[in-house]
């Protein structure tokens, strides 16, 4: 399994590759996009500046340095959709990245744009972004028929589903699953909200005034105490879960490890699903945070690859994170059902 690592500056390449990155991915937002859209419509899943490269020369430099170490570089074009005019604008951008930066592939969410890219650049590997929400084998069949190289599975899939889908993809599509950072309270591919300007709706939700409604015949009757208690406990737990999904309030541990969504305990089982790449999220994180996250994943993957069993893998992951209270709460786990 390769570790797929975000990069947002050419200076990060050597550090990340030397520490075990098997693949790199980055975002590229050309100045012309910013002139056209300002900050109102993001080219990819990050804001136009933070976490993105803005010069094609920098993408070329990232690719040159990565290729010198035989590591491929993929570029994200994974907004949920692009209008026809945006697609017309972006196809030459992709062309330029192929010609001038020798990128190894792109990551796409919009199925229509996926078709356009395949038609225009049939030799360019295209990965189906997690935003495409490949939840079933039908989607794998569809993607294969369209010439996809890889499918990146959404965060919400558990280990049994991943195992089934990786088996279904075997030999036809490469597969990638999340292993560290950045949760999503909702299903990313079906979330029609935006994080720009107003912030993440999911993070705000627990703090917003709410009330429970009855849909059944008891609509007019007052809630009994037991039900109210259940409702209160539910919303308290929801508040905590959202906080964990949001990187524990975007915090880091005393050792500098990013808190928040993590699949390390499950890496023993994840490896047995047949998934081919492990994704670390966080293009907009600092170089240090990227490095620490990568070292953490590398350490646990090395352990798995040298034969550690499930219990040992899990124990070591918790030990390295060194936030037992967070791990114990279990709301940080990507693959909670399997640990």
């Amino acid at each position: 399994m390769k570790i797929t690592v975000p990069v947002s500056h050419p200076e990060e390449v050597e550090m990340l590759v030397e520490n075990g990155a098997g693949e790199l991915y980055c975002g590229f937002v050309p100045p012309e996009w910013l002139q056209r859209h300002g900050g109102a419509f993001w080219l990819n899943r990050r804001g136009p500046v933070s976490g993105n490269l803005n010069r094609r020369e920098d993408v070329a430099l990232v690719a040159e340095r990565a290729h010198a170490r035989r590591v491929p570089v993929f570029v994200t074009f994974n907004a949920p959709y692009y209008t026809p005019e945006q697609q017309e604008f972006l196809l030459p951008v992709v062309d330029g990245l192929i010609a001038d930066a020798s990128i190894d592939g792109i990551i796409v969410s919009d199925l229509g744009f996926f078709m356009a890219v395949r038609n225009a650049f049939p030799d360019l590997p295209v990965h189906a972004s997690s935003v495409m929400a490949a939840l079933n084998s039908g989607m794998l069949d569809l993607l294969e028929s369209l010439g996809a190289r890889r499918v990146i599975f959404p965060r919400s899939l558990g280990l049994p589903a991943l195992a089934e889908l990786c088996a279904a993809a075997g030999g036809r599509l490469e597969t990638e699953a999340f292993v560290l950072n950045e949760g999503c309270v909702f299903e990313e591919g079906y979330c029609m909200t935006t994080h720009r300007t107003a912030g993440a709706l999911c993070v705000q939700l627990p703090a917003v005034a709410h009330r429970f409604l009855r849909l059944d015949a008891a609509a007019a009757s007052p809630r009994d105490d037991g039900e109210s208690e259940a409702s209160r406990e539910l919303m308290e737990a929801f508040r905590d879960w959202v906080w964990f999904q949001n990187g524990c309030g975007n915090s880091v541990s005393a050792g500098g490890i990013p808190n928040g969504p993590c699949g390390l305990c499950a890496l023993h089982d994840l490896a047995r699903t047949g998934v081919t790449s492990l994704k670390i999220a966080g293009r907009s994180a600092s170089a240090f945070r990227k490095l620490v996250g990568l070292q953490l994943v590398r350490a646990i993957l090395d352990l798995v690859e040298t034969g550690a069993d499930r219990a040992e893998t899990s124990r070591k992951a918790v030990e390295l994170r060194n936030t037992p209270e967070f791990c114990g709460a279990r709301y940080m786990c990507y693959y909670r059902e399997g640990t």
């Binding site: 002139q35 056209r36 859209h37 300002g38 109102a40 419509f41 959709y81 692009y82 209008t83 026809p84 005019e85 945006q86 697609q87 919009d110 199925l111 229509g112 744009f113 996926f114 078709m115 356009a116 038609n119």
Partner: peptide
């Protein structure tokens, strides 16, 4: 006040693009 391209993109989808039509 929004840039024209952004305003347009927020008031439509990508479904009229040739690739989506093909699907």
């Amino acid at each position: 006040a929004a840039p024209a391209a952004a305003r347009s993109a927020l008031c439509r989808s990508g479904e009229l693009a040739p690739g989506y039509r093909e699907l």
